[in-house]
Simulated assay, not measured.
Amino acid sequence: MLAASGVVAGSPLLLVLAAGLAEPLVAATGLAPRQSQVAATLVLQGGFGVLGYVAWRRLGPEPAAAAWSEFARGLPFGAVVALVELLVNRLVVVAATLVGHGEPVAGALLLEARRQRALLLQLPAPWWGLGAAIVLVVAPVAEELFFRGYVHRYLVRVVSLPAWPAAALSAFSFALVHGFVAHLPGLWATGLVLALWYSRRGHIGAAIGAHVAANALGLLALLALGGQPAPS
């Protein structure tokens, strides 16, 4: 699920903003461009998380539950989330093969993954740790607060949609925001599963736990990816 919240995680808009913010950081701090890109992404994801938290709180409290207990319940479910994305990506390749486009689609999936791997591997150790923290902590918290805690709950509570249509729509917005074209179906499936899991548990901690675990598995898979990393 790393593609769902990679080191340069976010939408095409966030990528543009990160690039624009990274340039003055290079000039002001003397950081290398890649390091500035990670720092800019951290700032943007942090802002996204604050926005998500405020929006989540405005919809009112969730049922009382132990946050850490729900977080722990979500961790094992992260394996399901990661498996769903993997299977959907595989089905996309199979479907593309049936219409004669399997090789380009598979190549696009691999290229996107290798670009993320290249960014991680070419960072100095402390910055690699910061990039991993974005993937494993900042992005899961920010994205769950916004897409599940706010968007999904807004569609259910305010728009009065049933859980499944609300999950499908919130998952669509989740997938679009990430801007990884080849992974779009897999990201949609990821958002759908997370939204349904959130609906079942009724606590944002469970969704964050599942997202953290899925991203951890994605990070391990990314680091184990063979071949030469593509330039980012």
Rank of each mutant, 00 (worst) to 15 (best):
W188K: 06
I208P: 06
L25E: 10
V81N: 03
V99W: 11
A125N: 06
T190K: 04
A167M: 02
L17G: 11
L21H: 04
L184I: 08
V212H: 01
V212A: 07
T41N: 14
L223P: 03
L15G: 14
A230N: 01
G209E: 11
L192A: 07
L109V: 04
L161I: 03
I204P: 00
L196N: 05
V94A: 13
T29F: 10
A40W: 04
L25N: 04
P104N: 05
A207D: 03
A32D: 14
L192N: 00
A19W: 09
A72K: 15
G131E: 09
L111I: 06
H178A: 02
V99K: 03
G107V: 11
L13D: 08
L2F: 12
S5F: 13
V16K: 09
R200S: 12
I208Q: 01
G131T: 06
A133D: 11
L110C: 04
A168F: 09
S173M: 14
S170V: 01
G131P: 07
W197L: 15
L222H: 09
L83I: 04
E103N: 06
A189L: 03
G49P: 08
P124K: 10
F48T: 02
L223D: 07
S160D: 15
V93A: 12
A72D: 12
G107Q: 14
R58W: 09
G202Y: 10
L225H: 06
V54P: 00
G227N: 11
Y53L: 15
W164A: 14
L59V: 08
L223W: 13
A214I: 08
L13F: 13
V135S: 09
R157M: 10
G74V: 03
N89W: 03
L136I: 08
A108S: 13
S170W: 01
T190M: 15
S11G: 15
A79T: 12
A22Q: 08
F172H: 08
L136S: 07
L220G: 15
L222A: 11
P104L: 10
F147T: 00
P126S: 09
R200N: 04
A40H: 05
G129P: 11
A132W: 05
G74I: 02
Y53K: 02
S11T: 08
L223N: 08
G102E: 01
G226D: 11
E62A: 12
R90T: 14
R57W: 07
F48L: 12
A182E: 02
P63D: 12
A139H: 01
G131Y: 09
T97P: 02
E143D: 12
W68R: 12
P231R: 13
Q228Y: 08
V50T: 05
A213Q: 13
A3K: 12
W164N: 02
A182H: 01
A230E: 14
R58K: 13
R117E: 05
T190W: 08
G102Q: 05
A65M: 06
L109A: 01
G226W: 04
G6I: 03
